[in-house]
């Protein structure tokens, strides 16, 4: 490299070119970020389609069972679908920002799928005398529910420990007709977090011990570790 003896006079073309390149980098970063977010949305849509197909299958199964005995159906057939991971992915997408209208639409669809799944499972369980465990969880992420995060953590831990447990989580403020009907049928007040277990509503944070006390039948469910070990055998 040659030694430097240039004058210090500003060369405005350098300033302009640097500005354009920096602006281009920002625009590219925005584009790439949006591209990956759109990919995530597409992933979630695909999963929602899968879940929808699963629910249709359950409903069809139920229709078939109207005329046939339940001998071929057991609790293991009621294992939760990809619904749990879908909920986590939607939470992440919402926290990341992005196209809020698109995310709200995905959440609405997700809530509808949850309600349909819940109803189908309940009907199937009643018909076949099965005893699945359901928890309906109502939360708010508007910043008015300081305990919702901890409640969500507890329920996630339960879902991981008991794969057969069906936790349906609903954004209380989501304007979906079916969800508002569910809220009104179960008489859930805007006092969150709220859990509906066996038809009874519990308000405020419920610890793991409290939920285990409310739901003694949890002990009858297979745990993740026992499922893993039986699979290994």
């Amino acid at each position: 490299m040659d030694p430097v003896v240039n004058t210090r006079t500003a060369r405005w073309s350098s300033y302009l070119v640097a500005f354009l390149i920096t602006a281009l980098i920002f625009a590219t970063a925005l584009y790439v970020s949006n591209y990956f977010n759109e990919q995530r949305v597409a992933d979630i849509q695909a999963t929602e389609n899968d879940v929808s197909a699963q629910i249709l299958s359950t409903e069809t199964q139920f229709d078939l069972l109207q005329e046939h005995p339940c001998s071929d159906v057991s609790e293991t057939d009621l294992a939760p679908s990809e619904m749990t991971s879908l909920g986590s992915e939607l939470d992440y997408l919402e926290a990341q920002g992005g196209n809020q209208a698109e995310i709200a639409r995905l959440k609405s669809t997700y809530s509808l799928l949850e309600i349909k799944d819940y109803l189908a499972m309940r009907q199937l369980a009643t018909k076949c005398s099965l005893k699945p465990v359901f928890i309906l969880y109502f939360y708010s992420n508007k910043g008015d529910c300081p305990q919702c995060e901890a409640q969500g953590d507890v329920l996630t831990a339960f879902s991981q420990e008991y794969p057969m447990l069906r936790v349906y989580s609903f954004d209380y403020n989501l304007q979906v007709g079916a969800l508002q009907t569910l809220i009104s049928i179960d008489h859930v007040d805007n006092n969150l977090p709220a859990l509906v277990i066996n038809g009874k509503t519990y308000y405020g944070f419920q610890s793991m011990q409290a939920i285990q006390k409310i739901l003694p039948q949890l002990k009858t469910l297979q745990t993740a570790s026992s499922t893993a070990s039986s699979t290994a055998k």
């Binding site: 390149i21 920096t22 920002f26």
Partner: peptide, 10 residues
């Protein structure tokens, strides 16, 4: 970023 790129352009 602008400063880094400015030096690079120069």
């Amino acid at each position: 970023l602008y400063f880094e790129i400015f030096l690079l352009v120069a």
